[in-house]
Amino acid sequence: MSRSAFGRLHPAVSLTVGASIVCLAFLTRDPLCALLLAAGVLAFNGELFGASFALKRLLLFLTLALAGGVTNPLISHRGVTILFYLGDGAITAESALYGAVSGALLADVILWCEALYRALPSGAALWLTGRLLPRTTLVFTMAIRFVPRLATRLREARAAQRPFHTQERLRHAVVALQTGVALTLEESCEIAAGMEERGYGKGKITSYSLYRFRGRDGWMTGAVLILDALALTGFLTGALHFSYYPGLLPGTGSPAWYVFPLALAFLPAIAERKEKMLWRFSRSKT
């Protein structure tokens, strides 16, 4: 099992939370949203792996934001607030901010994907796709597995018979290829026979699932769906919309709308923190 409380949630739930957050990072162009998403992932990383790990991530975030903020105004001169001139190119505040926010959002996506990859158990995504698209997942995993397997078979066939003379090398390589392909074909026949023996394709079969949908999964699903709906409403009504060109134009609406992306970004970190608190309190009572 995963060592993280968030990773011990039902995979459908934790993946929904992760997908919502990454989608938010793709959807938004708002500077504040970019910062909130970064704060969320840094808090999550801090809860999971400690402060120094999170600090390294912060460094990546700052580097990407800075790189975007420096390069974009050199290439694009859109915007009306001219800060200064480099040669004939006007460096505008709008262009710099747009570049910085783009870099920050890119860093957000990278960091969130990394954090989810580390926190979730390795089979979680496979389990979910296996439920939704069993055939596609089977073909996909087998195709992925095929390449390293064939390489191993070829290596084995080559090692079995090493040529003594250099002139024999070509003939030997052809023989080894032939043997390797034959081995792979034979193996696939065996796999097919084995699957048939286990009842694959002979009607409905049941399987044991490692994951259970518990009460906390229900709470989490409810919370994330409501937050998603509210954040989406914020985007559609223009409250969370931010436009850069020609002049900076923040969203029209109350800043209270930012509560929803904030809550969404901090959901995983809160899940971790809650588990730790529970552990601490249960220990002190006894």
């Binding site: 420096v70 390069t71 050199l74 290439i75 480099l86 040669g87 004939d88 190119g89």
Partner: peptide, 14 residues
Amino acid sequence: LVVLAILWQNGAFS
């Protein structure tokens, strides 16, 4: 190098 190239393209050294 990239920054210098962009600056040169913008005419910063003319």
